[in-house]
Design a protein around this nucleic acid. Structure first.
Length: 501
DNA sequence: AAAAAAC
C-alpha cells in the first residue's frame, strides 16, 4: 500500500531548477541562491564559489521547503547540498523573539556510521560558523556526558547515528518535538544495517509537520517503501558522482592465490609513492592482520574497523588524514561517505561481496580533479565477484601482470604467519585463537567455500538481491556523466524505473 | 559470507 502511495505521486520535476541556469559564460555561483551573507562568508572562507551539480539542484528545492528524494552517492557534494539550505531555512524562520539561550533542535541529520556523522557535523559547523546556529554530533561508542552537555547547552542542528540518538531521547537529554527538518543520509546503508526499526521510532517522535530529505545511492523496494511512508510529495534529484572521479581512476585487477595476497599488497605498495593508500579488506580480522603484516614490513599502517574502540577508529582516521600513517586498512566501515580527500590509490585486498560496494570503495580515489589508481586483488574463488562488478560498471577491468612479484616472497610470509604469535599483540583478543587457527588451514577453507558458495543464493541479503537498475544510476556513477543539461529527462527515467517496480 | 550500530 505504501508502494502505491508512492507511485501515485504526481511526477514533479524540478520547478526551481530552471530558475538558475548555468551557462558556459556564467556558471552558477553560491551567491545566486539568495543564501545569507553569513553562509556565503563561510563558503568563501573555504574557497567555495561554484556549487556542484547536486548542490545546484538541491539548494533551491530544499529552500522551497519541499521534501527531497536524492539519488546521490558520496563525493557529489551532497552534504553541502542539504546543509546550506537547511542553515538558511533555520536562519530565515528563526523567531526574533526567541531568546538566545533557547536553542531547540530544529534539524536532525541521521547517518549510518559514526565517522560519517562526525564528518557531516564538521561540515555543518563550518557552514554555520558565522551564524548564531549551533550544532552537535551524537553517536555511540563514546562517553555520553559530553554529548549530553552539548545538548543541554542547546543546539539547533543535531547530527547522529540512530542508536545513540534514541539513547539520548530515552534519557531525556534530547527532545525531538521541535524538529522541522529531517535528513536521512545514506538511507540505503541504514536499512542495510538494520536501522529500520530505529528509524521508525525516531520518525514517530518527530512533529508530523516537517520537511524530509532522504539520500540514497540505491532504490530497492525497501527504500521506496520507506520513502513512501514518510516523504511527502518528494522532489527527485539524481546526481551522479562528480566528474573527475571515475574518468581519472585507473582500474586494474590482479589474480593471485589467497595465501599470496598479503605479499602482493606489500609488493604493490613498495612499487609506488608510499602515501595515503587506503586498503579495503572484507573482514575485520583480515584488516587487522594485513595492517600488522605491513607494519612488520616497516610500513606505517593502521587498521580501522568495527571491533576497534571509537577512540582508536577516530585516531586512525585522523592519523591517516594528517599523514602520520601512510596506509589505512579498512573494512567497509570506510567504504561510503567518508571524505578522505584526493587519495592517490585505493587497493581492494578482497573484492567486495556486493558489486556496488566496489564503486563506493574506489570512489575514495580520484576525487577533486586528481587522478587515482584503484587496484583490486582477487583469487580463483572470487571470479564470480569480479564478473558481478564488471557487469555493474559495464566495463572490463584490466588484468594486471605480476612482473617482479615472485612466489618466493609469498612463501616467506606464509612461513611467518604459521609461526605461533604471542596473543597479546592482537587487537581483538577474543579473535586471537581463531585467527592463528584459520591461518594454518587456508586450503581447507578454499575447498569448503567452493562447494558451499553456489547453493542458496536467493535468500541472501534482501538489500542486494534486488539492486537498482545499473542502467539508471550506476553507469553515471562510474562513467561519471552528470546529466549534461538534461537533468529532467534523467530524473524522469529514474522515476519511471521506480514506478515500474 | 561480512560489515555496521546503544548500553
Amino acid at each position: 500500500m505504501s508502494d502505491t502511495e508512492f507511485t501515485s505521486q504526481p511526477i514533479t520535476l524540478p520547478a526551481a531548477a530552471p530558475a538558475i541556469e548555468a551557462t558556459a559564460e556564467a556558471p552558477v555561483r553560491f551567491a545566486d541562491f539568495g543564501l545569507s551573507p553569513d553562509i556565503l562568508r563561510a563558503l568563501s572562507d573555504q574557497g567555495y564559489v561554484h556549487p556542484t551539480p547536486i548542490q545546484a539542484q538541491a539548494i533551491p528545492i530544499v529552500l522551497q521547503g519541499r521534501d527531497v528524494m536524492g539519488a546521490a552517492q558520496t563525493g557529489t557534494g551532497k552534504t553541502a547540498g542539504f546543509s546550506l539550505p537547511i542553515i538558511q531555512l533555520l536562519l530565515a524562520h528563526a523567531s526574533s523573539s526567541m531568546s538566545p539561550a533557547r536553542h531547540p533542535v530544529r534539524a536532525l541529520v541521521l547517518t549510518p556510521t559514526r565517522e560519517l556523522a562526525v564528518q557531516v557535523a564538521e561540515n555543518v559547523k563550518a557552514y554555520a560558523r558565522h551564524t548564531p546556529l549551533r550544532s552537535t554530533v551524537v553517536f555511540g561508542g563514546m562517553d555520553m556526558a559530553p554529548q549530553t552537555a552539548a545538548l543541554r547547552a542547546g543546539v539547533e542542528i543535531v547530527i547522529a547515528t540512530p542508536g545513540r540518538l534514541l539513547d539520548h531521547v530515552q534519557q531525556k537529554t534530547l527532545n525531538l518535538s521541535q524538529v522541522q527538518i529531517l535528513v536521512m543520509d545514506e538511507a540505503d546503508r541504514m536499512l542495510d544495517m538494520g536501522f529500520l526499526p530505529d528509524l521508525q521510532r525516531i520518525i514517530n517522535m518527530l512533529p508530523k509537520q516537517r520537511q524530509n530529505l532522504m539520500f540514497s545511492a540505491t532504490f530497492s523496494p525497501e527504500i521506496k517503501k520507506l520513502a513512501a511512508s514518510f516523504l511527502n510529495d518528494p522532489q527527485l534529484i539524481e546526481v551522479a558522482r562528480s566528474n573527475q572521479t571515475a574518468d581519472k581512476v585507473t582500474q586494474v585487477v590482479y589474480k593471485v592465490a589467497d595465501e599470496h595476497k598479503r605479499d602482493l599488497v606489500a609488493h604493490l605498495i613498495r612499487g609506488r609513492d608510499l602515501k595515503q593508500i587506503l586498503i579495503f579488506s572484507n573482514t575485520k580480522i583480515g584488516a587487522s592482520r594485513l595492517a600488522r603484516s605491513l607494519e612488520q614490513d616497516g610500513v606505517k599502517a593502521t587498521a580501522i574497523h568495527g571491533d576497534k574502540t571509537q577512540q582508536e577508529r577516530m585516531a586512525a582516521l585522523d592519523a591517516f588524514k594528517k599523514g602520520d600513517i601512510d596506509v589505512l586498512v579498512a573494512t567497509d566501515v570506510a567504504a561510503r561517505g567518508l571524505d578522505i580527500s584526493d587519495l592517490p590509490c585505493v587497493i581492494n585486498f578482497d573484492l567486495p561481496y556486493n558489486a556496488e560496494d566496489y564503486v563506493h570503495r574506489i570512489g575514495r580515489t580520484g576525487r577533486a580533479g586528481a587522478s587515482g589508481d584503484a587496484i583490486s586483488i582477487f583469487s580463483d574463488k572470487d571470479e564470480r565477484l569480479l564478473v558481478d562488478i564488471e557487469k555493474l560498471i559495464k566495463q572490463t577491468i584490466r588484468r594486471g601482470e605480476l612482473a617482479g612479484f615472485t612466489p618466493a616472497a609469498g612463501r616467506a610470509s606464509v612461513e611467518r604467519e604459521r609461526r605461533p604469535r604471542p596473543d597479546g599483540e592482537a587487537r581483538a583478543p577474543r579473535h586471537g585463537g581463531d585467527e592463528s587457527h584459520s591461518a594454518i588451514r587456508p586450503p581447507e577453507r578454499e575447498r569448503g567455500s567452493r562447494s558451499s558458495a553456489l547453493p542458496r543464493r536467493e535468500k541472501a541479503d534482501p538489500w542486494f538481491s534486488k539492486p537498482y537498475e545499473p542502467a539508471q544510476i550506476a553507469p553515471a556513477a562510474v562513467s561519471n556523466a552528470m546529466p549534461a543539461g538534461k537533468p529532467k529527462q534523467k530524473v524522469a527515467a529514474l522515476l519511471g524505473g521506480l514506478l515500474k517496480r
